[in-house]
């Protein structure tokens, strides 16, 4: 479904200082897969998502979605940006923000209204639908951005540390909400996070990246049961084992002497 092949991205160039953010990334997501992406800060996770979404042209390699090469943002793809606050339109109310992409897709008015109300309610924000984003806290803004991506009903959902600004309880709720959506709608999700626990809890698979210049350090299958629960799943021996394994991988990735994973 989503193929990343030999992806390389060098910023700058043209004589000046250049930064090699991504050296050589290759992995494939099957349709309906939920994969988490972890790696040290500054290793190029955002850069990877931008290349995957077609916002940024790679220096080498390619991204294919359903066999088609991606050169610009494809249809049916939504992205939750790391800078969630700046990704909301400040001159529109929260409801209008969620509605805008639906208008672009020519969804009929009545259906739009329903979708907006439904998704805002699902992230617990039905009360502030007529408020403006800048009237909300950071965590609430982040949930508006999530609601906007969900209401869009994408086939592929890219999320860049979407739960970073919310409190622990809301975070747990949103994790379960996301898994619920994923199971119900069969959407393919690539989820970037700093939090190893979150990666293991959410994902069917965790891709670990090395420090820049970045390659795939490891690709860990998460064989936890599909029905997950914040308390019991996190208490499973397998959960703890996966967590320690990924933790060690990241430590090694940071120090830079990691073995390089080859699929």
């Amino acid at each position: 479904m989503l193929d990343v092949r030999g992806l390389r991205k060098v910023y700058g160039g043209e004589g000046g200082r250049s930064v090699e953010a991504l050296r050589d990334l290759t992995f494939t997501l099957q349709e309906g897969e939920l994969a988490c992406l972890v790696g040290p800060s500054g290793c190029g996770k955002t850069t990877l998502l931008k290349c995957v979404s077609g916002l940024l042209a790679p220096t080498a390699g390619e991204v294919r979605l359903a066999g088609e090469p991606v050169h610009e943002p494809p249809e049916g793809m939504a992205m939750v940006f790391q800078e969630y606050g700046r990704s909301l339109f400040p001159w529109m109310t929260n409801a209008q923000n969620v509605e805008l992409p639906l208008k672009e897709r020519n969804v009929p008015k009545e259906e739009r209204r329903l979708l907006v109300a439904e998704t805002l309610a699902s992230v617990g924000l039905e009360d502030v639908s007529s408020a403006y984003p800048w009237q909300l806290s950071g965590g609430m803004q982040q949930r508006v951005a999530i609601a906007r991506a969900v209401a869009y009903q994408p086939k592929v959902l890219l999320m860049d540390e979407p739960f970073a600004a919310v409190d622990a309880q809301t975070r747990a709720d949103l994790e379960d909400l996301l898994r619920g959506l994923w199971q119900r709608l069969g959407v393919t999700i690539l989820f970037v996070t700093h939090d190893i626990d979150e990666a293991v809890y959410l994902g069917g698979r965790v891709i670990v990246l090395t420090n820049a210049p970045t390659v795939v350090q490891d690709d860990v299958a998460v064989d936890l049961p599909d029905e997950r629960d914040q308390v019991s799943t996190r208490a499973l021996p397998l959960f703890t084992e996966l967590r320690s394994r990924i933790y060690e991988e990241i430590q090694r990735a940071k120090s830079g002497d990691g073995r390089v994973y080859s699929p």
């Binding site: 916002l55 943002p73 249809e75 793809m77 940006f81 700046r86 339109f89 805008l100 672009e104 869009y152």
Partner: peptide, 15 residues
Amino acid sequence: VLVDTGRTFRMRARS
């Protein structure tokens, strides 16, 4: 970021 948002949601030139 706003420009990128508009691009991912494939906003048409007019809107």
